[in-house]
Simulated scan of single mutants.
Amino acid sequence: MEIIVISDTHLPKKNRGLPPVLKDEMKKADLVIHAGDWQTPEVYEQIKQFGDLAGVYGNVDGDEIKALVPRREILHVKGFTIGIVHGHGEKKTTEQRVIEEFAEEEVDVIIFGHSHLPLLRFVKKTMLFNPGSATDKRRLPYYSYGKLTIEEDIYASHHFYSSLL
């Protein structure tokens, strides 16, 4: 099973759209997960055209997005438990907030966004996975999205690109 993981699309911004490289990957995916900061419902509708979609809202998302997706979600996929939350809040680091968000549940993976910084690391037995931003890299040299591949185990990778065209 292939899962494409994105976050912090912040679209439309400067008339940008989803990059072709990401669209191509979403066409092949079994599931797309968005970790918040969609910005508009049109982005949700556009991504949903590619197939199954799960996601949460972030700090820039308004009531229209909040009506479509929850603040946090837990998915059970092929024997793995995946927690999804944007990660925004006050005090503490984004990583600390997402770990605390799922402290009462046994999750194998926590997917989050907010920082726009790609991250893959483990805290005890839980994988923390931030795909970075597919369309708003800020001061980073590359845009990025993530991919989870589930077979007997779960594998995570980041995919980087320099152009939205």
Rank of each mutant, 00 (worst) to 15 (best):
P141L: 06
T126A: 02
R139T: 09
L75V: 10
P131L: 07
G89L: 13
K48C: 08
S157C: 13
F122K: 13
K91T: 11
D61I: 01
L68M: 12
V85Q: 05
F102V: 10
A103S: 15
K91G: 15
V77F: 05
L120N: 12
Y161G: 09
E95R: 01
S163C: 14
D108I: 01
L53Y: 09
D108T: 11
A67N: 00
D52F: 03
E105G: 09
A35R: 04
T81W: 10
P20S: 13
V98F: 04
E25A: 15
D153P: 04
L18D: 04
P20Q: 11
F80Y: 15
N130T: 08
Y143I: 01
T81D: 02
G17D: 14
S162R: 15
E100I: 11
P12Y: 05
T94P: 09
E2T: 14
P141H: 02
A54L: 06
I111W: 08
D153G: 12
T126M: 07
F50W: 07
S7Y: 10
T40E: 00
L68G: 05
L148T: 08
E73P: 05
A54M: 01
V77K: 09
L68S: 03
E105K: 14
H10R: 13
E104K: 10
D153F: 09
T135S: 11
I111F: 02
D52Y: 03
D63A: 13
Y145T: 07
T81Y: 13
R121D: 06
I3F: 04
P131E: 10
L18F: 11
F80N: 09
L68I: 08
A67T: 02
F160Y: 15
A35Q: 01
G17F: 12
D30Q: 06
P19M: 04
P41C: 03
D153T: 07
K48E: 06
V60D: 05
D153C: 11
G55S: 08
I74N: 01
V123C: 11
V69L: 01
R71G: 08
L128C: 01
I99K: 04
L164E: 10
W38I: 07
E64H: 04
H76Y: 12
E100T: 13
I74D: 12
I47M: 13
K14I: 06
G87K: 00
F160P: 02
Y44W: 09
K28V: 11
A156K: 00
R16S: 15
G146S: 14
I154V: 15
I33L: 00
F129S: 13
I65F: 00
F129Y: 13
L119H: 05
V32C: 03
Q39E: 07
T40D: 07
D37N: 10
G146Q: 12
Q96K: 12
E105F: 12
G113K: 13
A29T: 11
L164Q: 04
S115F: 08
K125H: 12
V107R: 04
V109T: 02
K124M: 02
Q46K: 00
I150N: 10
L31Y: 03
